[in-house]
């Protein structure tokens, strides 16, 4: 997406960070050091064997394209949103490089 190849180690940190990736609020996954993971969304274990990198990337960028009623936010879409707080306006949840890092990490979860 950004041109630079993703770094799985950085991606893992983003996924685990509850202020950045927010992933573990809803998903659970192979993070033995992280207590209290979410039970709302599918387990991230094995996602790398269920989906290709391209499929993972698309689901992060704009999951609504696969399921319009999904609760998963679009991590790289800034239009079509209502009442976004001023400090988050026109900003994607994650940058292109961060998304590459997350994709690279999730692809390792075979």
């Amino acid at each position: 997406m950004s041109g630079a190849k993703g770094d799985p180690a950085r991606g893992r940190a983003i996924v685990a960070n509850r202020q950045a990736g927010l992933c573990l609020l809803c998903h659970s996954g192979p993070f033995p050091e992280e207590r209290f993971q979410g039970s709302i969304a599918p387990d991230l274990n094995g996602i790398g064997s269920r989906l290709s990198e391209g499929q993972i990337r698309l689901r992060i960028v704009d999951p609504g394209r696969f399921n319009p009623s999904t609760i998963m936010p679009a991590y790289f879409r800034t239009e079509g949103l209502a009442r976004v707080a001023p400090s988050f306006k026109e900003k994607p949840i994650l940058s292109a490089q961060q998304i590459e890092d997350v994709v690279a990490f999730l692809a390792t979860l075979k």
Binding site: R18, L25, R35, F36, A85, P86, S87
Partner: peptide, 13 residues
């Protein structure tokens, strides 16, 4: 004791 992490804290914008 185990303290869970609050998910939606009131915070400054």
């Amino acid at each position: 004791v185990v303290v869970t992490i609050a998910a939606c804290l009131e915070e400054l914008k």
